[in-house]
Design a protein around this nucleic acid. Structure first.
Lengths: 261, 261
DNA sequence: GAGTGGTCTAGACCACGAG
DNA sequence: TCGTGGTCTAGACCACTCT
């Protein structure tokens, strides 16, 4: 009996009511984060169905023994990630699938972190040079001031994919070519206590010069993807200027955009 | 006298203490948002200096007559925008300038919204066609099912910049060519009650075909930027598949990345 | 040790959307 | 009208950083 009631409940609060969450108040990881992680896991595992769901926040907070603001904070973080949608007077729903995959808006991480995972990187140049005008402006250095120039060739599956040219402020960090090739620039920066905060990127295209073509194993005039980036740490200091070219036949940028509400 | 003390105060809590914020409790716009807007304005106007600043949250909340969580919410929104940085045991600082400009991670908006602002758009094709395999998969339609194909040529300053090819689910919305050219696709969707939520983009490059070259006023084989996008509304429904090509000599994507902490 | 942000609580009232 | 999320309050304790 009470089938109507059951059905109604099943629509508004599905799997969630029968799920249990393991919240450890002794853990150093915040409660809202624990909850968010477990909700996200439930979503990606398919335990939480895309359609409608997620009972109201008050009930949820009571059931979990948390305050409503804490539950809200957890839910909000998943909304910001694009996994959930909230509607007033309706409830919170799992977004209708499709979109999510492990993409995220990487390409900053991609480029800086990827080394050593499968792609290989070879340092071609590593020396101190006077800053070209554009680079000096980007890094906030006096024109012609010293910069560290880094030129690398990146391959995947043994075939070249990209020419990476980076300029760094002098004395930013110690760069060891061997570790650079095995660890990647990003991790070395992080290990040196540099916290990346933001970056400005420009992606374009142009035809390959003869030199680029030969180094990338392409024909002269082939279409190349170009990327320029200035990266800043959390104090606002420019820590890198990058000028990269990619073989368009073997590389593309892809990312997900979330629309700011 | 007390010069040392003055200097110390000037470092930790600058202009803010002498600034007044106009908070209207009767307004429908939330208090935390009013505060965030005024803080942002103060930052971009230069009233709030980049270096160090922003007195602690408790003082601020007392001075503004708000609760601390409310003040935190305002500050947090600016942190998320990349304008502020928080450090435990230190304080909240305005990020060291440079980075901010009205860029944001647009290009979704750019493309969909730009029409009618200066660039002009001309509808070249607008018809119902069977969905090609890749398009059908992206839109979640049966292969060969009906889709609305839209082909547009975009110019700036009278010269071609891009060929825009879009596929829309049938019956998504009424498309009037005249309004499409003057208003843009995005605004028409929004006006039709479609709330964009997220999009997946791939940016690459390739050489121009003869047909593209002639329509874009480039030479055959010239490097072109390509962009593919699938956009979703807030129910998770795919509402657009786009395949665009841009003249690399006259167009590039640029955007700002914020590093997730 | 002092001061900062990070987390959490237990309530409250309001605005919006659905029926 | 009722249920939902949206906003807001007034506290509390902890963890971290700097001195």
């Amino acid at each position: 009996m009470a089938k109507i009631g059951d059905r109604a409940r099943a629509v508004t609060e599905p799997a969630l009511s029968s799920m249990d969450f393991a919240l450890d108040r002794g853990s150093p990881v915040p409660l809202y984060h624990q909850l968010a992680q477990q909700l996200e896991a439930a979503i990606t595992h398919g335990d939480l169905t895309p359609g409608n769901l997620l009972g109201n926040e008050v009930d949820l907070s009571v059931r979990l023994g948390l305050s409503r603001p804490t539950v809200r904070q957890a839910i909000q973080s998943l909304v910001d990630k694009g996994l959930l949608v909230r509607r007033r007077g309706v409830g919170t729903q799992v977004v209708h699938s499709q979109v999510r995959r492990p993409l995220e808006l990487s390409s900053l991480y991609d480029d800086l972190e990827a080394a050593g995972q499968g792609p290989s990187t070879q340092v071609a140049r590593h020396e101190t040079v006077p800053a070209p005008p554009g680079v000096a402006a980007a890094l906030g250095l006096p024109e012609g001031g010293e910069t560290v120039l880094l030129e690398r060739l990146r391959r995947t599956h043994g075939r070249p994919v990209a020419l990476l040219c980076n300029y760094l402020p002098p004395d930013l960090l110690e760069l060891d070519d061997a570790r650079l090739e095995s660890t990647g620039l990003y991790r070395m920066m992080r290990a040196a206590g540099i916290t990346l905060h933001s970056a400005r990127q420009t992606v374009g295209a142009r035809s390959a010069t003869a030199g680029e073509a030969s180094r990338l194993d392409e024909k002269e005039g082939a279409a190349l993807l170009t990327m320029h980036r200035t990266a800043y740490d959390d104090t606002g200091r420019a820590v890198e200027y990058a000028s990269h070219v990619y073989r368009a036949s073997r590389y593309s940028f892809d990312f997900q955009l979330l629309v700011r509400s």
